[in-house]
């Protein structure tokens, strides 16, 4: 595999270019045809196909780039250019689990920096590096759209909400020990990097109905509204009951009600 040093360069080991065996290639081709058929123009399938390559190789391999180029009638340079643009496409073999600590401003301030320091020291690895056992690739991630649950950690792109240094160290230890870990809002368990990559290629794994619909922070406004009897105007207003806004001052109507 490629070295664990994160040099930022695309490592292309000979192994990375070794051809797929016939069976793998046949399966990949069949899957790729399904992906391509979703789009009016085949090139749109490139991002999903790169996810598909990661689902087989655990990263964007040299042979995977060649495969995408062949399937889509592109040059390998075209494909590499795209693959290196996006952070989810890995240039060297990824661990079984990507653990991403959000260190964008809000999460960082709420504790993400402390979590990063603790888990990085605990594992002895830095950003985009993988533990020697191949289980955890650690990343600093940007805002993952769960700020109301800060500090947030992502485990293979499932939400681990309201984390602490201790909870995150527990998370990586459980993952390394092969235990099933349930995300806060997500599938019943965190799936492997290759399994998740296959989902991102658009092949769903039957887990959509697992997990919650919403966490407590998501529901806070709704809960308060229900407690106080607040609701949007009636869905079937009596004629004239809700007049047009023409005579309404610019302010918030609720404020008028409160006064």
């Amino acid at each position: 595999m490629a070295g664990t040093n994160a040099s930022g360069h695309l490592h292309v080991d000979p192994e990375s270019k070794a051809p797929y065996d016939a069976e793998t290639l046949a399966t990949l081709r069949a899957d790729a045809e399904i992906v391509i058929a979703r789009y009016p123009q085949s090139r749109s399938a490139l991002l999903p196909l790169l996810h598909l390559v990661q689902s087989v190789d655990g990263y964007v391999s040299g042979r995977g780039i060649k495969f995408c180029a062949e399937m889509l009638g592109l040059t390998t340079a075209d494909v590499s250019g795209v693959a290196t643009f996006y952070t989810q496409f890995k240039r060297h073999e990824n661990g079984r689990y990507t653990v991403g600590v959000c260190t964008n401003t809000l999460c960082a301030v709420m504790g993400g920096d402390a979590i990063w320091d603790a888990v990085s020291a605990h594992l002895g690895i830095g950003h985009d590096e993988t533990t020697a056992d191949g289980m955890i690739t650690l990343e600093r991630v940007e805002c993952n759209a769960a700020c109301d649950y800060a500090p947030v950690v992502m485990a293979n792109w499932e939400f681990m909400d309201n984390q602490t240094p201790a909870s995150t160290i527990q998370l990586v230890e459980d993952l390394r020990a092969g235990k099933d870990v349930a995300p806060t809002r997500g599938a019943a368990k965190v799936c492997s990097f290759t399994e998740v990559s296959r989902v991102l290629a658009g092949f769903h794994d039957g887990r959509a109905d697992e997990g919650v619909g919403a966490g407590p922070a998501t529901l806070l406004g709704l809960k308060i509204a229900k407690e106080r009897g607040w609701a949007a105007p009636s869905s079937a207003p009596a004629p004239g009951a809700e007049d047009s806004s023409a005579d309404r001052p610019g302010g918030l109507k609720g404020k008028e009600a409160a006064q």
Partner: peptide
């Protein structure tokens, strides 16, 4: 009149 919160979505 609308209330301070209006859950629709």
């Amino acid at each position: 009149m609308t209330t301070p919160l209006t859950p629709v979505l």
